[in-house]
């Protein structure tokens, strides 16, 4: 079994049927089930799948258990010892093949998404000119056949294709809709406390603004560990009254140098919605700002005197005298102006 959320899996105590669904291009019905912990808190979606995998008119049955997290994102699969998945020549998948399959099923951006089964038939190695014509296309085939070949199990293209579409197809939306029907504050809490990026993201989306304060510790922890796109989301959503509290401001700005450049831009722009402490935490890092970030920062200092105190002026002067030639002219000019 390949699984991304082992700890949670150990806590499973209940298994309950939810609804039936069918895969893409088949009429085979599968049953979607919900796995919960001993207290009944939902943890995974799950389906025992038997699906025909067809190539060149010949079909074989693939048996596999597929697991999704609460958001309907694939997290793992299991196969039965007696009925392994097989490749073209009926050879069973090896351990390495399963590992690759696991990787593929977890890739939501997979090139298989926009491919019809027919497009994949070309089994002839693609080299030279033929490869050239497939590469580098800002659209229609963002993927090359080579890319497809690299992402699937050799000789197991059809199984991979079928299973990817089962695990990442329409069922994902259905699971998310189901989550909505059972959603509760307890789930928000669970998602925000978890260490999974997609859970945190969803929890934040669901977190009402008035609840931010209650969850500020989670929010800050997530901010410092999550992806830039989610950081951007937090900075856009956090209510100003909360952001302005000195302790919150300090927490966001004290790690200015550790966050990505896009987040830095946002932090600078948000300075005037924060406690003036932010400005002191920024001034010590002007050397790592981009040109435009420094310009915005200085511009804000010019317009909002509350953020320009003696400490900041002193720091700016020190920088202007420093050996860092990158911005010293700009900073010197600023000092002259104010």
């Amino acid at each position: 079994m390949f699984f991304n959320m082992d700890q949670e899996y150990k806590e499973i105590a209940l298994d309950q049927e939810i609804f039936n669904f069918t895969g893409q291009d088949t009429t085979v019905v599968h049953q979607l089930r919900m796995l919960s912990d001993s207290l009944g808190a939902p943890r995974f979606f799950y389906a025992d799948i038997e699906t025909p995998v067809c190539a060149d008119g010949e079909c074989k049955l693939a048996k596999i258990k597929v697991y999704w997290n609460l958001l309907g994102n694939y997290v793992g699969f299991g196969v039965f010892e007696k009925t392994p998945l097989t490749k073209n020549e009926h050879d069973p998948f090896t351990h390495a093949d399963y590992k690759k399959l696991h990787q593929l099923l977890g890739d939501r951006y997979s090139v298989l998404e926009r491919r019809k089964m027919d497009d994949l038939i070309d089994e002839v190695p693609i080299v030279g000119e033929a490869l050239k014509t497939y590469k580098g296309i800002d659209a229609i085939s963002g993927a090359t056949k080579k890319e497809i070949k690299e992402s699937v199990v050799k000789g197991g293209l059809y199984s991979c294709y079928t299973l990817w579409h089962l695990a990442n197809g329409a069922i994902v939306k259905a699971m998310k809709s189901h989550l909505e029907t059972i959603y509760s504050d307890a789930i928000t809490n669970y998602l925000l406390k978890s260490s999974y990026l997609d859970y945190q993201e969803y929890g934040l989306k669901k977190l009402r603004k008035e609840k931010f304060e209650e969850h500020i510790e989670d929010v800050l922890r997530i901010f410092h560990t999550t992806t830039p796109i989610t950081r951007a989301y937090i900075l856009k959503k956090i209510p100003n009254e909360l952001f302005q509290k000195e302790i919150v401001t300090s927490n966001f700005y004290s790690k200015f140098h550790e966050v990505d450049k896009n987040t830095r831009t946002q932090l600078i722009a948000k300075m005037i919605q924060s406690d003036p402490k932010s400005s002191e935490l920024l001034v010590i890092h002007i050397d790592i700002m981009t040109n435009n970030q420094l310009e915005s920062y200085l511009e804000l200092l010019k317009k909002h005197s509350a953020y320009l105190n003696e400490f900041i002026k002193k720091e700016l002067k020190t920088y202007a005298r420093s050996k860092d030639v990158k911005y010293n002219l700009k900073v010197t000019e600023f000092i002259r102006e104010v």
Partner: peptide
């Protein structure tokens, strides 16, 4: 033709170079 919108890879994964993008179709 499909609609495709791009995003910088490093918005989802900071370890990626900042000059590569991904397309959503």
């Amino acid at each position: 033709r499909e609609v495709d919108v791009h995003f910088q890879q490093n918005l989802k994964d900071e370890d990626k170079p900042d000059f590569l993008s991904t397309a959503l179709f």
